[in-house]
Nucleic acid binder design. Structure first.
Lengths: 341, 341
DNA sequence: TTGAAAGCGCTAACAA
DNA sequence: TTGTTAGCGCTTTCAA
């Protein structure tokens, strides 16, 4: 029923190959012929079938993207970076939410591979051997974003999570705090563990004893963090500062303290992580470790295009710089005291 | 190089058709044969090629989704609803950002159609004749979400924008306000205009004169809204309440007033729109018109599956209910005074 | 229950 | 510069 390349060829009095050439911008076509074909295409309303093209050429110009949760501001921003660059290179993306469930991740990878994506962009809490095995069966490049596999075999784009957490903790230490609460994500996850390690290292380097009771684990969300904060507030020796590894959790920390009658940043300082829009839309505004979310997405997609086009890649492990965005939830003096080592 | 259905057939000593049957769960296969084929599939690591399948069957089990901006919390939540339901029905989604640019929207539709998506889910500020013409050339169903075409020909999922704005304005009117500022989105856009109309209607019904100077248009974002708020604050007769048609803008309104020395909700009341997570993470928490964002996405995708599967559709224009979430940016008495007509 | 065979619409040698 | 002709890997009648 729909118009095919064959119809166009017949109507224009040329061969399928010629039509294919003009459709694909092949220069080896006489201008007059091109013009004639173009006219017929227009007249018939011919629309190339990308599936047939994909089968014949073994390229689909679509890449698979596996992301934990697109409704999460952090990942949404990342996804935007991915899509923009994909678009720039004429790729479309098949977007899949994994909810960080390994089973679902594996199924998704399988599905995307069946759909013959030209590349895979994977975001997930952990890259296990099962993931690696599956990736190995893929004949297309895979790039990780915001994670890294244990053996560092796969190309990936990240920030230095450990260092970022170290810097954040250091800022608080520089302000004289010795009871710094750590409100982090699951330690089984790559980022969760790295940040915890950065926090501990900073304490150790500063000669401040690590205390178990100053650590609480949540799922990066406001509601959960609010509950975890209750623990800190019942402590005989209450923390005087909080390092939360997401902005939502940091806001929860602020509210928990405020509700208990404390002022932020006068009585307690709070620093978050990510720098999502929320951070600048709350009062006090949130001091936070800024991840270049959009760029992580953009760079990882760019990296993937390089692999897909067989371009030379100098470093497959890229670490983008993070910064500490000083705002209202920490005291002003901090501006001169950002830790860098 | 990669294993094909033919390899499996040869290895299992059956025909391609039989392999195809077991892969697709066709019951007309002797259990013993099925078992043998399954074994070979496993052993060879056969992975069905969905592109070839798509060409042969004319079904790709992927749908195209055109969304203004996935980095926007409202659309991100919607997208999640879409993806979840798509997934439930075994579809994948190709996600495209349009930034509300008509040109880009049209190109995207064209591209998705070329990719032979089984259906299209479109979100955009306006559905023009050009859109309609393009949709008409599509041999697959199209569903609109958060918009509606002028002729109401295309199926769509929405809330009653006009009524929602009416209700919000009414709440403020019920609190005795006569100078209610309207901080809205572009009037050229479907939602922008509908909400403005609802606002005006509510004023009119209450016998409160409409005043041009109480209207400001922004792009739904915090930063822009903050600038627009300056206008209201310089007015000789300052508005005593603000109806902002996005939560980010409502938060900006609150901050603008707070920075000018006013208290919310004591001195001025503010109501937002959407009910994104931000609304409950700011202090005061935000009273807002709650759109069932996830459900709009989910229902529109479900509707699309019905069309794709040729199921009977009773109503192609669905309006999901909205509510007003009473929180801290309006005065408590309001709880008994929600407008409903 | 199984197989043979004709496409699906296009690309990509290869030849002319 | 153009055309011919194999496929690409699968589904789907139609027969058997």
């Amino acid at each position: 029923m729909s118009v095919t390349i064959y119809d166009v060829a017949r109507e224009a009095g040329v061969s399928m190959a010629t039509v294919s050439r003009v459709v694909n911008g092949n220069p080896n076509v006489k201008p007059a012929t091109r013009k004639k074909v173009l006219e017929v295409i227009e007249r018939l309303g011919y629309r190339p079938n990308a599936v047939a093209r994909g089968l014949a050429s073994k390229k689909t110009t679509t890449v698979g993207v596996i992301i934990p949760d697109i409704a999460n501001a952090f990942y949404a921003e990342l996804a935007r970076g991915i899509e923009d660059i994909a678009n720039m290179y004429k790729y479309n993306i098949i977007l899949c939410n994994s909810d960080k469930q390994p089973k679902k991740e594996l199924t998704l990878i399988e599905t995307l591979l069946e759909k013959q994506v030209d590349g895979l962009l994977f975001m997930g809490p952990r890259v296990t051997d099962e993931h690696l095995d599956l990736f190995r069966t893929a004949s297309v490049p895979v790039v990780l974003a915001t994670t890294i596999d244990p053996g560092c075999q796969l190309p990936s784009v990240n920030i230095d999570q450990r260092q970022a957490a170290y810097d954040a903790t250091r800022l608080l230490l520089n302000h004289g705090h010795t009871r710094i609460a750590f409100l982090g994500g699951p330690l089984e996850e790559f980022a969760g563990l790295s940040r915890f390690q950065g926090y501990r290292q900073a304490l150790e380097d500063a000669g401040v004893p690590f205390r178990e009771e100053l650590v609480q684990i949540a799922d990066y969300r406001y509601e959960t963090a609010l509950k975890r904060m209750a623990h800190f507030l019942t402590l005989p020796e209450r923390p005087t500062a909080v390092f939360a590894t997401s902005d939502e959790m940091a806001v929860a920390a602020i509210h928990a303290y405020q509700d208990a009658g404390f002022r932020v940043p006068e009585d307690v300082e709070v620093i978050g992580f990510d720098n999502i829009r929320l951070a600048s839309m709350v009062r006090p505004t949130l001091t936070t470790v800024a991840q270049p979310m959009y760029d992580i997405g953009a760079v990882s997609m760019r990296l993937l295009t390089k692999y897909m086009h067989n371009e030379k890649v100098t470093d497959s492990l890229v670490f983008l710089p993070h910064t500490i965005e000083i705002r209202g939830s920490t005291r002003a003096e901090s501006k001169t005291a950002v830790a860098t080592r």
